[in-house]
Design a protein around this nucleic acid. Structure first.
Lengths: 208, 208
DNA sequence: GTCTATATGCGGATAGAC
DNA sequence: GTCTATCCGCATATAGAC
């Protein structure tokens, strides 16, 4: 699936130069945000001149878009191909694993936190991306919750949309606190506790 | 309390020019972030030249600090002087009111969301402010939860620190989703639902 | 595809007159 | 306390040679 996307754009999947630029740009956007990132610095780290960089990505905005697309694609591979379209209750366990993985890759977490919040400012190029990403996430989680309810694993009267929004909210909120003060926040444990509480209150009471 | 701070700095509480600058700077920082805000634009909107602005705040960073201090002070007045040091369970009701108020003042919410997340980037002037603010918020909420437990309103075995971090996380996470897509997110309702669930699972079972 | 050179603009901050 | 004028640096982007 990633491959077809790349073919459509007319460059080989294994374009090392391009991948290297994207890798470095990802780090720079994470460290300094979109506005704080300088193309000259990305270029220098990638071992080419700034106009050389603009040969591959015609504007800074296009570079950002390419970074976001790459990350979305990688995440899809990781969480969809891996678990399949993980159904029902398995999703919650998968989310716990996502958070555990995130706690070992702070730079990727920073990328999302920084760009998502920058996106709420006026005329930001990542605005549509952020909005669409949240809508997609909410739909995805809500869908899994409904399937779990239909399968009899969760109470049939649960509010799937509200629960999904809350789960995503707590993931995001914990990330910010954790990035600012990692020693004070045990992100995976706190998220796991939330999921446990959720299950305790939403689990269908077969035996009760 | 605000007054004494102002006196210490040697300007009258009612310095209209200064207050006007801070008001406009608050809007600009909220709309464009720290990096995206231009002193020239703040100055223009405030009706003076850019060097004129720098007479009142010697650097952009000092302007930011002044904005953050003013907001913290206003919030303190609002939520401490108002409810007193709202004790125990009342705090949760107070937080619901805070979220309801926030949903009517998106620009102030945006200020916090944007600056807090920008603060996780390298060498950002609001870093210490953001870290200290979260530490203070967590301590404050955890303290209230412990008092509620001591008063017999909540289970004595609750993890106050973890619960506090989670409450703050969900407030923040909902804010981001709401700012990006207000029509899709009923922020006060979602937060209230979370508090209700929390109470349901943490309430001491006197009658049970 | 990559470079050097450069256009062009905006940013924050300073000097010094009024 | 506010202004005009200006410094200086950095930003993105382009032109055109190789």
């Amino acid at each position: 699936m990633g491959t077809s996307t790349e073919r459509r754009r007319g460059y080989a999947a294994g374009d090392a130069r391009r991948e290297r630029i994207l890798h470095i740009a990802t780090q720079e956007f994470a460290e300094h945000g979109y506005r704080g990132t300088s193309l000259a610095r990305v270029a220098e780290r990638a071992g080419l001149s700034q106009p050389g960089l603009l040969h591959h990505f015609r504007t800074k905005e296009q570079l950002l878009v390419a970074v976001l697309e790459l990350r979305d694609r990688r995440d899809m591979e990781r969480y969809f191909d891996g678990d399949g379209a993980s159904g029902g209750l398995d999703l919650l366990a998968a989310l716990v694993r996502v958070v555990e993985h995130n706690s070992r890759t702070p730079e990727l977490v920073r990328l999302f936190v920084v760009l998502t919040s920058e996106a709420v400012t006026a005329d930001h190029p990542a605005r549509d991306w952020a909005r669409a990403r949240y809508a997609r996430l909410r739909t995805w989680v809500a869908h899994a919750l409904r399937r779990a309810a239909a399968a009899g694993d969760l109470r049939p009267d649960l509010d799937a949309d509200a629960t999904a929004a809350r789960i995503i909210a707590i993931m995001d909120g914990l990330q910010t606190q954790w990035l600012l003060d990692p020693a004070a926040i045990d992100m995976p444990a706190l998220f796991r506790a939330h999921i446990d509480d959720l299950l305790a209150s939403l689990r269908a009471h077969h035996e009760a």
